[in-house]
């Protein structure tokens, strides 16, 4: 990296100011506000607040509902990350080998990226509709009576499928460019050294894709945690309660539907800590095993 010395020592800070102010206004301030609110019991109508210390945290952590949502969030995140990475990698490997009409093929795989999360949720509702949904009809053919919004498992699976579908294009684009970044002659050398294409993939192609994969892993976990809000909201808003939701959605539900601002703030503070720890763990542990060439 090239080092540039500024003549005036204030110019670098001036140039950083827009970024810093965005961080301050949209992250630091709300975060501080959440931390403050998590120690108070707020009156639902804004008439006052009472300092309650760690009561909000204790109530949150000891509630069985919170544990259930946590468990679902972990499972949901795991499946969304696993399937959206796995399927995207499979599609990218196949697309990389397409010789004719490859750009049309690639464009078709990417365009879902342009669909906004609530729209994706809406499409999901249509696909899983109790009366006209084709997926529900297909499931009925094999004797599976899908009930989205009523059956906990069915709902969770439908949410996972829509979330995976929405995320595949992003992963696909990154994996494809990662694959195209692998030297052709290295792959040819591998073709001479190893007969089995599958073995070649796991011993040469996959390790060389690891930097891309590591980056996408973080992006996908973050996505499953936070960015699936729109999908969940659209799919579940009109359904009765007791549905599978993620921790982020619960923050919103408790705070703005249940008017429990203190408890909701406590949950978001816990989330912040989780993300903080997760980031450190990921960079410390996983990056050490990744080869950057």
């Amino acid at each position: 990296m090239k080092k540039v010395q500024f003549q005036n020592r204030w110019i670098p800070y001036l140039l950083l100011l827009p970024q810093l102010s965005i961080v301050a206004v949209f992250f630091l301030w709300p975060a501080a506000e959440a931390v403050r609110a998590s120690f108070f019991l707020e009156d639902p109508f804004g008439f006052g607040s009472t300092f309650v210390g760690f009561d909000n945290f204790i109530d949150t952590v000891s509630s069985s509902d919170y544990l259930r949502v946590t468990r679902f969030t972990v499972v949901f995140t795991f499946f969304v990350t696993f399937f959206s990475l796995g399927l995207a990698l499979l599609l990218a490997v196949k697309a990389d080998k397409v010789l004719h009409g490859s750009s049309a093929y690639k464009t078709l795989l990417m365009w879902v990226y342009a669909v906004a999360p609530p729209v994706a949720g809406l499409i999901g509702i249509l696909l899983f509709d109790q009366h006209v949904g084709p997926i529900v009809d297909m499931a009925a053919l094999v004797g599976w009576k899908m009930q989205i919004g009523v059956n906990y498992f069915d709902t969770g699976m439908a949410m996972t499928m829509v979330a995976v579908w929405k995320q595949i294009p992003v992963n696909f684009i990154f994996f494809l460019s990662g694959l195209q970044g692998i030297s052709k002659s290295v792959q040819e050398a591998a073709a001479i050294d190893c007969r089995s294409g599958i073995r070649r993939f796991w011993t040469v192609t996959f390790p060389l894709l690891a930097p891309t994969g590591f980056f996408l892993l973080i992006i996908n976990i973050t996505y499953a945690f936070f960015d699936t809000f729109g999908i969940i909201d659209v799919m579940l808003k009109t359904q009765p309660g007791n549905d599978p939701i993620t921790l982020v959605y619960k923050v919103y539900q408790d705070g703005f539907r249940g008017n429990d601002l203190g408890g909701s703030s406590a949950q978001s503070v816990i989330l912040m800590l989780v993300v903080f720890v997760l980031t450190i763990v990921q960079f410390r542990l996983i990056e050490r095993r990744v080869h950057y060439t």
């Binding site: 050398a189 060389l208 690891a210």
Partner: peptide, 20 residues
């Protein structure tokens, strides 16, 4: 016959070593 089954070895211009 597949390259791996031809019993040949090749040295490439850019060496093509496995970087990892």
């Amino acid at each position: 016959v597949e390259p791996a089954d031809r019993d040949i070895a090749m040295v490439f211009q850019n060496y093509a070593l496995y970087p990892h």
